[in-house]
Write a protein that binds this DNA or RNA. Structure first.
Lengths: 168, 168
DNA sequence: TATTGTTATACTCTATAACTATA
DNA sequence: TATAGTTATAGAGTATAACAATA
């Protein structure tokens, strides 16, 4: 093995420097895996949590609007809402003022599942951020939000509430 | 348009708190998209850059070892090495001491493409981290590395060199 | 004509199981 | 028997185009 560093410092080759982008990419997939596992108890997938999260709170939303906020294609929204409706977590209702539109409503059951989904996301945070102090978490969040702000799609997603959970 | 916020400028609801995990997940996919786009000029996909990065420097590596370090399945390694070999970026050679094993070697062309891949990753970093000072980048990297350290698979990946690029 | 939702399709990525050749 | 590599296959995610209903 290569010589390890004394404390939590990185054992990276000093001639090389880490790419934060590559690290974010790998961290993202690791989080996805953990999140998917944590959501299994609620029989939800990450995309459903994202959709419920954006829908929750905001009254009725069209599928078009939901897709824009989530940054996913309209055809993908159909599949997601199909799933939510089949599980009784959301309802499609025709918008009487524009009968092309569906107004998606989260059901009370959907709100309850959403709350449990938030718990699952909180567990993932607590597990992965266990070594960080509250101050460090705050620092990390602030920096990540600033990075996300440089990406219009991410910015929209965040403003739409896709990463917000109720204060605990 | 009966949303509580007047326009798209709404900050986060004070009654809700952002999940760093959810944010990391979304950031990861955003980075993936940008990285994939930046790598198109080299006709490389992110997974190929990851493989070349782990292979580069470490002489000959078996596909088994490569898969473990990348955290991907052996069958996926076959496809990746197939791609690299077809493009002349790596070679499979039988290990004479155990003829079941392949020793994967990066070719000089592979090293050149790897260098350009690193450039692409650097561009993604520079774009997404443009608003951060050098000190803040350092802070962010340190925090992210500590978070990654809590995940055995990520830790292995990082130690194998999957996120390292040459110092610039 | 344009827009909303829908369906069909295709391509990528990932994971699993079965097969082969070597050990 | 066990291991390294390979192949086939199935599932989920994502993106595009074509279509029906409605505006």
């Amino acid at each position: 093995m290569s010589s390890p560093q004394p404390d939590g410092q990185s054992p990276l080759d000093p001639d090389r420097v880490a790419s934060i982008g590559l690290l974010l990419s790998k961290l993202g997939t690791a989080v996805d895996r953990r999140l998917a596992a944590a959501l299994e108890v609620v029989q939800l997938r990450p995309k459903h949590l994202g959709a419920l999260s954006v829908l929750g709170g905001h009254g009725a939303v069209s599928q078009q609007a939901l897709g824009e906020r989530l940054g996913v294609d309209a055809s993908a929204v159909v599949a997601i809402v199909d799933d939510l409706e089949r599980e009784g977590l959301a309802r499609r209702e025709r918008d009487p003022r524009d009968r092309r539109r569906h107004a998606i409503q989260v059901t009370p059951a959907g709100e309850r599942v959403l709350a449990r989904g938030y718990d699952a996301a909180g567990e993932v945070d607590d597990t992965m951020l266990a070594d960080l102090t509250a101050h460090e978490r705050e620092q990390l969040l602030t920096l990540l939000l600033r990075v996300a702000g440089t990406d219009p799609g991410l910015d929209r997603l965040i403003r739409a509430g896709a990463i917000a959970t109720p204060a605990r």
